[in-house]
Write a protein that binds this DNA or RNA. Structure first.
Lengths: 108, 108
DNA sequence: TGCAATGTTTCCATAATTTGCAACATGGAG
DNA sequence: CTCCATGTTGCAAATTATGGAAACATTGCA
């Protein structure tokens, strides 16, 4: 069948795709406190630096973070605070609905 | 390497994954107006009813929509309006950042 | 009962994503 | 300059996602 979905929705989907991985969500939450380098994030999420770098590249491409080199390090920082509100929305409504429906106990 | 990402972030990622497809974003926007049946949505997004049904199943599993049978039809409706705010956030900040970065390189 | 309309599930092929390893690039120290 | 630390990119394997076709399920109606 022929696709008829306007481009606007593809752009939105790309943005959400950048958030559609536990490691990337975790990274954003860590960057909420303060900027961090790749090696620090890699250690925290338990991935090779190459994998961490690729996740950060996706977040950067989507516009959620920016990077700046400091010596041998590359520091990443959060630039789209509204993503936190999005996550909050998730916690407050979506996951709540899901818990009720599936009877999953809440987690802090 | 061993994964050390808390379950909380996996749950959030699952929710965003449900939004990480143009067809599903399009569906949610259509449901914003009024509830619709599977066949209507399938025609609008240009997919077979089976594919449309699977997309709706994912949205339902994530808690964004609910379904109710009406005769031979199955009507889907939006139950998490905050998803619209999330999309608005996307339009307003993320995509704007991206435009600046891709079209005006070298500018802070 | 039989039949049509609508949805869901299953199977399969194709495409996209993710990861680690290795190679390469960049910057600082000696 | 060389050596080392940090990041990025290329590659291949494994995993996951997607879509169509067909089978199956459910409802309404004659």
């Amino acid at each position: 069948m022929e696709p008829t979905i306007p481009r606007k929705y593809s752009l939105r989907a790309e943005m959400f795709k950048a958030l559609a991985h536990p490691a990337r969500i975790y990274i954003l939450d860590k960057l909420r406190e303060r900027p961090r380098c790749v090696c620090e994030l890699a250690a925290e999420i338990g991935l090779e630096k190459s994998a961490a770098s690729k996740h950060l590249s996706q977040l950067k491409e989507a516009g959620f973070v920016e990077d700046e080199r400091r010596g041998t390090l590359v520091e990443y920082r959060l630039v789209a605070p509204c993503v936190l509100d999005m996550a909050a929305c998730a916690e407050g409504t979506i996951l709540e609905n899901r818990r009720k429906r599936l009877e999953i106990p809440g987690e802090g």
